[in-house]
Amino acid sequence: MKTEELIELLVQDTPDRLNLDHALMHAATAATLIAAISFFAVIGLRADFGTAIETGRFLFKFLITGSLTLTGGMVMFRIGKPGVPVQLTALGLLVPALAMIAAAILELLVMPSETWVTRMIGHNSSLCLTIIPFLSVGPLACFLYALRYAAPTRPAVAGAVAGLVAAGIAATFYAANCDDDSPLFVMLWYPIAISIVAGTGALLGHRLLRW
């Protein structure tokens, strides 16, 4: 086929109604809905939600998971667009990391040392490591589906970022159920759960997001 003929074909093809930004925004909405429905149907808020919401530690968990979702989302919206620099935006991911470290240090300063290990290990670790990945499945699928419209230079990295955002959403819901509020617990277990999701995202991205 001659190139002029290919051009004719391309010109006659239906115009793309959806652009990447719209696809990602729809995915984010769907992801949140799916996670919310799964959470409230299967897991539910912790029994003492009403009192927990008054404590600083409890609320701080949402600051960490929320900022992970937001900063990860900012990277995700850029990573699929060729020619758009992403490094500076990626620095935003330091925010949740530093916040978590700062809170952990504060906890160590404020709490007696005998309590450190118990607070860190907690009693919900197996729930944390299963519920966060479980709630991430739907959101990750939504984001990967939207990213198939994208053209990421490094498909595995894009998949990992989608995993971070999915895990951020999942962790936000999970935090509303978990009664281990210590930043030490969060710092030990949440990153493990989040890494599982990000790693899965990277593997799937490597396969699915090539163009």
Binding site: L10, L18, P82, Y149, A151
Partner: peptide, 21 residues
């Protein structure tokens, strides 16, 4: 050309075309 066609939704029209291309 085929790739540009299929991925044209990844260009943000408010950004310059050069880097994307």
């Amino acid at each position: 050309l085929l790739t540009i066609h299929l991925k044209r939704g990844t260009w943000d029209p408010s950004r310059p075309l050069g880097p994307w291309l």
